[in-house]
């Protein structure tokens, strides 16, 4: 510890993360899905799902890796398009839910008193409503479609994070380093945003990875129920289609969608776990 270069905390956490083999594999999977989604949204280098490639219900084989559906469309191309939908739902809902969760949680935890009472009441009320019910009513009000899915999932996803951040901020508020910031003349904003929040960011990152996969799963459920994506393939609509197909022995549409979803959800879970280990300051040095 004498004069060698010091590693930044984030760099240190990253090197610990990639030392874990499964975490590294999960990270690569997540990055690969993101890349596919990005390419698909620009229509670069991905197969076309709209045009018919051959007869209906062709089994997997040849250039059609996952066969075709009722209209003779390429199932693999539909899975790719579904990836784009899933990743965009994960990203957009996280972008909506996380700022709300962090700000609300931080305000409640930091100021306490009546502000906390009101926010806590709000959080408790919100989380006592069954999630799917709330999602369904939001999509019914806003109309079916991707935008409604974004909003519905974004508006419900912040609750858990807000509660977590509230508790953490409460804990950190009493720490001496925050009191020290007060003693040198720092105001509330400085204490909250410069001192406390950087110390809870790791929770936000871990939460994002879990939020992401919850959103993906919820989108699939909503689309399966016919409340989600309309007029384009998503993993949920594909699974919905498969209801009719399985009786005829057509398994590839179901398999394609579920395996694609399974892999990314698992990867996010493992990554979230590994992030917790790598970022948690309490585990440092163990």
């Amino acid at each position: 510890m004498q004069d060698q270069d010091t590693k930044s905390l984030w760099g240190d956490a990253f090197s610990r993360l990639v030392r874990d083999r499964w975490a590294l594999i999960s990270l690569i999977i997540v990055l690969a899905y993101s890349l596919i989604a990005l390419l698909a949204s620009f229509g670069v280098g991905v197969p076309d799902w709209k045009t018919s490639m051959g007869a209906e219900y062709l089994p997997p084989g040849g250039s059609l890796w996952l066969g075709t559906d009722l209209f003779g469309r390429d199932v693999f191309a539909k899975v790719i398009h579904g990836t784009k939908i899933a990743m965009s739902v994960g990203l957009v809902t996280s972008l909506i839910a996380i700022p709300i969760g962090v700000v609300i949680g931080a305000l409640a935890g930091y100021f306490g008193g009546w502000i906390d009472d009101i926010i806590s009441w709000f959080i408790t009320t919100f989380s006592s409503i069954p999630n799917i019910m709330l999602l369904i009513s939001i999509t019914l009000i806003l109309g079916k479609g991707l935008t409604s899915v974004y909003l519905a999932l974004g508006m419900t996803g912040w609750v858990g994070l807000a509660r977590l951040i509230r508790g953490e901020v409460m804990k950190h508020k009493e720490r001496e380093y925050v009191q020290a910031a007060g003693a040198i003349g720092g105001g509330h904003l400085r204490k909250l945003f410069i001192h406390i929040l950087p110390n809870v960011t790791h929770l936000v990152i871990i939460n994002t990875s879990l939020q992401f996969q919850t959103a993906i799963k919820s989108e699939v459920i909503l689309s399966y129920l016919g409340l989600g994506v309309q007029g384009e393939p998503s993993w949920g609509t594909m699974i919905d289609d498969a209801r009719m197909e399985l009786a005829r022995g057509v398994w590839w549409q179901l398999a394609g969608a579920t395996v694609a979803m399974f892999i990314v959800v698992l990867a996010f879970n493992i990554l979230g776990d590994a992030l917790r280990d790598a970022l948690d300051p309490k585990l440092k040095g163990k």
């Binding site: 001496e176 020290a180 040198i184 003349g185 950087p198 110390n199």
Partner: peptide, 28 residues
């Protein structure tokens, strides 16, 4: 000014020593 008891919890773990020491000057 005040110097606290616990040198482990009275320094913000996410700030470098340089940031910690210059902060009082920044604040004022």
């Amino acid at each position: 000014q005040i110097i606290f008891q616990d040198p482990y919890s009275s320094l913000n773990p996410r700030m470098t020593v340089g940031e910690i020491l210059t902060e009082p000057l920044v604040v004022h």
